[in-house]
Amino acid sequence: MQQEAPGSAVISLLVDNESGALARIIGLFSGRGYNIRSLTVAPVDEHGLVSRVNIVTTGTLADIRQIKAQIERLTPVSRAVDLSSAGPHVAREMALIKVVSSGEPRTEALRIADAFRARAVDTTATSFVFELTGSSDKLDSFIELMRPLGLAEVSRTGIAAICRGPQTIQTP
């Protein structure tokens, strides 16, 4: 399980999939001066009517409670759960990392990718695109290690998160 840095929290929301819903959430964060470190959104029900939003934000415990209470006031938000305080959860992120190099650095990049179980999803004579899934920390360390080895471009999804065990977040 990902260990959040102190003061960071993952809030998961179930949101009616209507136009403007995301703008409302983002507007709340910018308008009230809250921080968004990462944000993911996608429909999660069979009819595409409900989206799940995962937000990584920072603040003191009281800040996080206030953020959650403010989000819960939004009409299209049917559930808001602070996963960080609701019990153990899994938080994962995917990244595509392009490394452009040759010779020794190229071999070294491949070796490290292997150790991280990153997959090369695109390979040319001078470049790799690695796909890596894991905790944000793990992605951070991989990217750091690639830096001297020809790191050229990074694209990350932001985290998706879910509670461990049989516990679920459902629309009421």
Binding site: G20, A23, R24, G27, G31, T75
Partner: peptide, 16 residues
């Protein structure tokens, strides 16, 4: 209008 009034209303709609 829905964009402009989003932060000044409890909720707003555009009826499509």
């Amino acid at each position: 209008t829905t964009g402009i009034t989003r932060p000044v209303t409890k909720y707003n709609y555009l009826v499509r």
